[in-house]
Design a protein around this nucleic acid. Structure first.
Lengths: 138, 138
DNA sequence: TAAAATTATTTACCTAGGTAAATAATTAAC
DNA sequence: GTTAATTATTTACCTAGGTAAATAATTTTA
């Protein structure tokens, strides 16, 4: 079993999907990582930046950067909370009203990417992905 | 079937692996994308930059950037070919002599990441990944 | 064979991810 | 209640990916 080949394939397919998603999102002036945050906020309501990066499992600076851009472009607002260290992120009216159109386009791209898999195969893929991990002893 | 969840999981697991691989490669002063090029050159011998980016399925500027760094750090040389537009990339002595040690460490990290999958599951995963694609009509 | 098209690489500029360290606010400890 | 530790966010700096356009060399074509 050539694990390097498997992981290279894994990497390539992700890039392929993200590039395609960027093309889809371009009509809305969004990038795939911005969409991920928009999606999270739509599901979870007004949450702090920490809640966002913990949920998305990326580092805090990544979220700060992307949110600053999204705020400039009118997708979100970042209000200071009662705990003055934290920023509570809310979607703008525009973000909420455009959301249904965006998610429809995204779902279509996702389904296009997964098209060759049966329902069962998608479940199998998810099951296998869940098993991937690094167990570090520390 | 929540395709967004599936793709988010996919993305997260890749980052998890790459971060771990970077930690592994840190002892050699390498990053995962540099390793990928080193691996390709070791397999394929002296090839042009175009051959590298076509094989790895990334864009040309990505390869230029990484190779410039790798040249500065003594992993590769880039010689001008008989076609003076092209650069033929060769591994340095150091790269060749350190390679066995590096690939051993990389394989170990790869296997750690895939550890929870049986031999059959790895094959299934590969088979499913191969089916992922974007069919664009143009 | 001179002009036009193509090809290989690079440059400039963008998003997306990471770590380390700084800052400011809050909580815990003494 | 002041000091120390922790927490949320940001800043600075790095790799890794993308597109668009520039440059230089080679091929094609008229």
């Amino acid at each position: 079993m050539d694990t390097s080949h498997l992981l290279h394939l894994y990497h390539q397919k992700l890039r392929m999907f993200q590039n395609e998603l960027n093309i889809t999102l371009n009509q809305f002036g969004l990038y795939h990582s911005q969409w991920t945050i928009l999606y999270t906020l739509y599901q979870k309501g007004n949450i702090t930046q920490t809640e966002i990066w913990q949920y998305l499992k990326v580092e805090a600076p990544t979220i700060t950067r992307t949110l600053v851009k999204m705020e400039q472009r009118g997708w979100v607002e970042r209000k200071i909370g009662t705990d003055k260290r934290e920023r509570i992120v809310t979607l703008t009216e525009r973000a909420i009203s455009t959301y249904p159109e965006i998610i429809q386009a995204v779902k279509q791209t996702e389904e296009l990417f997964l098209e060759q898999l049966s329902k069962q195969e998608k479940l199998t893929l998810q099951h296998l992905l869940e098993k991937l991990s690094i167990e570090r002893d520390e």
